Simulated scan of single mutants.
Amino acid sequence: MTLRALLLVTLLSTPVHAQMDPSTAALNAAQMLEQASVSLTGADSARDRVRALTKTIQAYEAGLTAMREGLRRAATREAQLTAELHSREKDIAQLLGVLQTIETTAPPVLMLHPSGPLGSARAGMMLSEVAPGLNARAQALALDLQEVQTLRQLQQSASETLTEGLSGVQTARTELSKAIADRTDLPRRFVEDPVRTAILISSTETLEGFASGLSEISEGEIAEINADVADRKGQIDLPAQGILLHRAGETDAAGVKRPGVVLGTRPRAIVTSPTAATIRYRGPLLDLGNLVILEPQPGLLFVFSGLQEVYGNPGQVIPEGTPVGLMPGETPEIGAILSTSSDGTGTDRSETLYIEVRQENSPVDPESWFRTDKDG
């Protein structure tokens, strides 16, 4: 039985109040992955193929995240139920013994009592009071056993869905790289001079020094723009799905304090421009690895570092949501995902995206610009 069919049967057989459970979460995730697959098929004919593929990858990432969470909750719930059933083994055995005795005893014998009719009446009254309780306990036990069985089938059936989802997102990433390479419709504010860029990189030792010299890397003057994102200050979405690991000024895993924030992402997560912006630089720099520097408005820079692949060219003006890179790492195998689905500690977000915001060439707290209260 497929995951989707299994969960539909489960939902139809469970009470309304019990439908916000791990099975439902996994069903929702399966539907998200199915919709992402449909989007991938339609991306080939989309007018803006880059945008269509970007949304498809984000849909796959959201679906895989939801699937992992659903499986984690399923594994946790199964372990909880199994432990409860083990701890109640004695009570369950007694209950089953009583029910079997009642079921196998002939009705005429049940009506007889050594004390005569009065004893039989009293026994009948006691039995009428006990029977509903026994019945309720039996029904509760049956539901628990059914839920354990469903959760186990859910985890066994998830492998196929995860395989399709991981294959789909990998295909979408490959297609996205091709679509970006083929794109020719973006306006440009300037053209990068590679010689000047190399000289600037070799002569600077800090991000501040490099940022202050960005105007030197162009061939000729950089066209002015009137962009303004001040009205979105504090409400701009983060550039990737992830969790906040370190705030500005906190010591990171390397023991270094930086003015930016560190976002934990999953391997190969897509990074997009959170606003319309000009690409001022992209490539390796200092000890920051591959980075992208975006200029949403004059005097304001968003720096995203720690990427493996970077997209676009300096000088291009890109719309909001345009992909600017992919995080490094290897997509985990199905077995690894299933074995860690009960972890729930965020250790699967093994890659780190460093985000720094510079205003008039001075660092400011990125949380004054970005929304960091959303779970990714």
Rank of each mutant, 00 (worst) to 15 (best):
G255K: 10
D343P: 04
L286Y: 15
V324C: 04
E175C: 07
E330M: 07
S202A: 14
L300Y: 11
R280C: 00
F190A: 05
A269W: 00
R371H: 15
G63Y: 10
D373P: 00
R4G: 02
A66N: 11
E78W: 05
G97Q: 07
L12R: 08
T184V: 11
L141K: 00
Q241M: 12
V148L: 07
T2F: 04
T265C: 15
I92L: 09
V310A: 15
F210Q: 04
D237L: 15
A253N: 06
D185F: 03
M126T: 13
L244P: 07
V292T: 14
P267M: 08
M20Y: 14
S157D: 12
P194I: 01
S215E: 10
T204R: 05
D343F: 12
R77V: 04
L118D: 01
N226V: 09
P107V: 09
T163A: 09
I92T: 14
F190I: 02
S350A: 13
R266H: 08
L112K: 10
R196T: 08
A123W: 02
D348T: 06
L244A: 07
P22G: 04
E219N: 13
L307M: 15
I201K: 12
R68F: 10
L81A: 04
E84D: 02
I279N: 07
T171K: 11
T24W: 06
E330D: 05
T347F: 12
T347A: 14
P296G: 03
E330V: 05
D228M: 06
S157T: 06
L307F: 05
V130R: 14
H17E: 13
V357L: 14
P239F: 01
Q155N: 10
S342W: 13
A26V: 04
S341M: 02
P366A: 00
Q35E: 15
A79W: 04
S342A: 13
A5H: 12
R77A: 14
R189H: 08
E216A: 02
G213P: 00
L166S: 03
T14P: 03
L154H: 02
D287Q: 11
V261E: 03
A253V: 15
A79D: 05
D185W: 01
Y60K: 02
A336N: 02
P328D: 07
K90W: 07
I279D: 00
G283V: 12
T150K: 11
S39A: 11
D237M: 09
A138Q: 06
V169I: 15
P107K: 06
R68H: 11
Q80T: 10
E192S: 13
